[in-house]
Write a protein that binds this DNA or RNA. Structure first.
Length: 624
RNA sequence: GCGGGUGUAGCUCAGUUGGUUAGAGUAUCGGCCUGUCACGCCGAGGGUCGCGGGUUCAAGUCCCGUCACUCGCGCCA
């Protein structure tokens, strides 16, 4: 007989009755009836009820066994009597009568309870993640993640992509997010950077002639976190040669639509080939966002021209100053109280906006200060143009175009949530296309890249030379699903002269470009195919499929919101020798912080830090 | 960096206008119980009310500061 098990904890059925079996697992739950004891034995696969009574030598041992101890049970499979059958359990028709038990590992008092769906504070969950991961929901999430990644990989291979690995220790790039830096021992004063994305390398793979690359790529960004943002995350990174934007869309839509349909659990999914394409400017107007949630039926409209001359002075002033007025409909709000509308305004102010105006309409009757000042005739004209009914309210966002769009976008989401208008049970995809190549940087008073500087401008060199930079669009696109940005991608700029020109428009000299991006520029001078790609975020895909509001729920060992690993104590204090090895000296401020932390950890037994941190010699922990 | 929320037993939470010895559930320990599956019943232990300061005869409760976690903004694809 196998040392630990003949079956897993989900395997046994009616047909196994009478078999002598050996099961191993965790003590999930116990029900002690004095003369008879029930133990729910759990492993990765499921739960089997183990029973022991006074005829079994296992009884006294099992009685004393704490929850989450690991045991091996030898016993016999018995059928359960009719009333005792548990229909909720796949193994519910049988139980294992325990003859003997071997204790593999005794559990002490638990910091959180595995057999409960109770919500625990995240710091407790993350510090004891190995226990947390035993719980049904997170365990299922991590397994879903595994299946999603396997499916993505297979689908990419089916599409003719090959998987490659790219370096983790790379060069720092001044573009984009802050890098995680790694000091170099062999090269004093120099640093590696962890990849924000394998951007350069995947493009170089195209230059190297591999044609279709993909990778389940780890990416790192040293920026502040959000519920849907982790400092380390995985992307389905891919790149293709000799393709147009359309080719990229046709390659990836079946992969995403396919994997979502596979794991959507009954939810509907936008079909491959039917992802709507929404130009960036249209998205900003109609949805007030470049990642619109298309489950939300509300559409924003621009009504600026109605308020050029209006009795409503505030809007007239904003419009006169070049601002815009955007509106979000609030359909069928005839029964909503004044408080509903005032609360929306309070919410907008709390979010840092100037305020959210509103008009009520109940049975055709307009209400609210804007309607009063603007006049019934003006309001009717406005409503007719927008196609609104006699019970539809209207929220107003006014200000500079960017602010008005942003407020309208936030209000669109808020109104739809309040009125419960968001369609359920579906995944709605879209492409956001035609991103502007450049934007006006208000702080630096100059033109700058609005997104990725390595995207090909639409119209290429001719556009750069002849058009207003702010009117130039890029072959750049995002995939959005239910309001989450799943990926961004582009047809790359593979022509050095166009790249120099684009950087010149953004105020960078050829020397600066050469200094920062010499590797790629050199490559493009030695025969580069036109190429493009994208990189859907895997954590976000799993998060959507698992219907989780937080990315950490689908990562086995996530960092907390301050980018710490509460279980292993990262980032940790390192000893002086390690610092010397990599030619690093701490600033006075850093040294002070380290000393304070060491003192605090030495005295504070409630500290989250592990004992390892306290060892000044640094020789106590790890596997080195 | 900024704003919101939270912080009371190992864990989840309650705690009134400031007023007796800070409660419940769960976990743990002890006792009872032969058919439960969130088993049930009886009992016990377990508290620096995040921390520091202040107001007061009296603070979990009010005020100031601070720390931690979290959500959002800034930042970031």
């Amino acid at each position: 007989m196998h040392a630990y098990r003949t079956h897993n904890c989900a395997a046994l059925r009616q047909s196994d009755v009478g078999e002598t079996v050996r099961l191993s697992g965790w003590v999930h739950n116990k029900r002690d009836h004095g003369g008879v004891l029930f133990v729910d034995l759990r492993d990765h696969y499921g739960i089997t009820q183990v029973v022991a009574d006074s005829d079994s030598e296992a009884l006294p041992l099992l009685e004393k066994m704490r929850l989450e101890s690991v045991v091996t049970i030898d016993g016999v499979v018995k059928a359960r009597d009719g009333a005792a059958v548990n229909a909720n359990l796949p193994t519910g028709a049988i139980e294992v009568f325990a003859r003997s038990v071997e204790v593999q590992s005794r559990a002490e008092d638990l910091p959180l309870i595995v057999n409960s769906a109770e919500d625990y504070p995240e710091d407790v969950r993350l510090k004891y993640r190995f226990v947390d991961l035993r719980r049904e929901r997170v365990h299922a999430n991590i397994m879903l993640r595994n299946r999603v990644i396997t499916s993505l990989r297979n689908r990419m291979i089916e599409q003719g992509f090959s998987e490659f690995q790219t370096p983790i220790l790379g060069a720092s790039s001044p573009e984009g997010a802050r890098d995680y830096l790694v000091p170099s021992r062999l090269h004093p004063g120099r640093f590696y950077a962890l990849p924000q994305a394998p951007q350069m390398f995947k493009q170089l793979l195209m230059v190297a002639g591999f044609d279709r690359y993909f990778q389940i790529a780890p990416c790192f960004r040293d920026e502040d976190l959000r519920a849907d943002r982790s400092p380390e995350f995985y992307q389905l990174d891919f790149e293709m040669s000799f393709v147009t934007q359309e080719d990229v869309f046709q390659a990836i839509e079946p992969v995403l639509a396919g994997v979502f349909a596979e794991f959507a659990n009954g939810k509907s999914v936008t079909s491959a080939g039917e992802f709507p394409r929404i130009p960036y400017r249209e998205a900003m107007l109609k949805y007030g966002s470049d990642k619109p949630d298309l489950r939300n039926p509300l559409i924003i409209s621009d009504v600026t021209d109605h308020f050029e001359t209006s009795g409503f002075g505030l809007f007239e002033k904003i419009v006169g100053g070049g601002g815009r007025v955007r509106v979000v409909p609030a359909p069928d709000t005839q029964d909503k109280s004044r408080k509903f509308f005032d609360d929306m305004n309070d919410w907008a102010r709390k979010e840092g906006f100037a305020g959210l105006g509103y008009v009520t309409r109940k049975g055709g009757e307009f209400g609210g200060p804007i309607a009063k000042n603007h006049g019934t005739e003006g309001m009717e004209k406005l409503y007719a143009e927008l196609g609104l009914g006699e019970n539809d309210g209207l929220f107003f966002a006014a200000g500079k175009e960017k602010d008005a769009a942003k407020l309208a976008g936030a209000a669109r989401t808020r109104v739809a949530e309040e009125l419960d208008l968001i369609e359920k049970g579906c995944f709605k995809f879209c492409w956001i296309v035609d991103f502007p190549m450049f934007e006006w940087d208000e702080d630096l008073k100059k033109v700058d890249f609005s997104h990725n500087p390595f995207s090909m401008p639409q119209g290429e060199m001719e556009a750069l030379e002849s058009k207003d930079p702010l009117d130039i669009l890029a072959w750049q696109y995002d995939i959005v699903c239910n309001g989450y940005e799943l990926s961004s991608g582009a047809i790359r700029n593979h022509k050095p002269e166009i790249m120099y020109k684009a950087f010149e428009i953004a105020g960078y000299s050829q020397e600066e470009v050469d200094a920062n991006f010499s590797g790629m520029i050199e490559a493009f001078k030695l025969g580069a195919p036109p190429h493009g790609g994208s990189a859907p975020g895997i954590d976000r895909i799993v998060m959507l499929l698992a219907d989780e509001p937080n990315i950490r729920e689908v990562i086995a060992f996530p960092l907390n919101q301050r980018a710490q690993d509460l279980m292993m104590g990262a980032p940790s204090i390192v000893d002086a020798k390690q610092l010397r090895d990599v030619h690093i000296q701490l600033s006075p401020k850093a040294r002070e912080a380290v000393e304070q932390a060491s003192d605090a950890e030495a005295t504070d037994m409630n500290s989250n830090a592990t004992a390892r941190d306290q060892s000044p010699e640094g020789d106590a922990g790890g596997e080195s």
